[in-house]
């Protein structure tokens, strides 16, 4: 558990370094995720020491967005001035994006043999 947590942090650190050194537009943790995935593929399975902290963190992922979300209060005036434009464009655009993505993916994967649909593994 502790070793796994350390490994998650080390992957993040390595990710931050790579992003900084190569000047990539991706955040360090995303690069860290790629590194860990590559490591897991090379290892062939997920050791229990990594699975426990990883699943613990992901189970409470939603909580982790609260501090950044409270930051919206800083932009109260900006948002108040153009809130209708902002909200309308965000809603319309999000609906269109969901429609396009879901339809394209559904169409392209229609003929793939993927086994059980929506399995709750």
């Amino acid at each position: 558990m502790l070793a796994g947590l350390l490994l998650l942090l080390v992957c993040q650190l390595l990710g931050e370094w790579i992003v900084l050194a190569a000047g990539l537009p991706v955040p360090g943790p995303v690069m860290g995720m790629v590194l860990l995935l590559a490591g897991l593929i090379a290892h062939g399975k997920v050791p229990a020491t990594i699975r426990t902290p990883a699943e613990g963190l992901l189970r409470h992922l939603a909580l982790l967005f609260v501090p950044a979300g409270v930051g919206l209060m800083v932009h109260a005036e900006l948002i108040a001035a153009e809130w209708l434009v902002i909200l309308t464009s965000l809603v319309v655009s999000t609906v269109v994006t969901v429609l396009v993505t879901a339809l394209v993916l559904k169409r392209l994967t229609r003929n793939l043999d993927l086994g059980a649909r929506g399995d709750k593994s």
């Binding site: 947590l5 998650l8 942090l9 992957c11 993040q12 990710g15 955040p27 360090g28 943790p29 995303v30 860290g32 995720m33 790629v34 590194l35 860990l36 995935l37 897991l40 593929i41 997920v46 990594i50 699975r51 902290p53 990883a54 699943e55 963190l57 992901l58 992922l61 909580l63 982790l64 967005f65 609260v66 501090p67 950044a68 409270v70 930051g71």
Partner: peptide, 24 residues
């Protein structure tokens, strides 16, 4: 507020790395 809440915010980093597990 963020002086305290940053400790929760910080966990977003390792949580993003942890996404590799379900992905694998």
């Amino acid at each position: 507020y963020f002086e305290g809440a940053q400790f929760i915010h910080f966990l977003l980093g390792p949580a993003t790395v942890a996404l590799a597990v379900p992905l694998y």
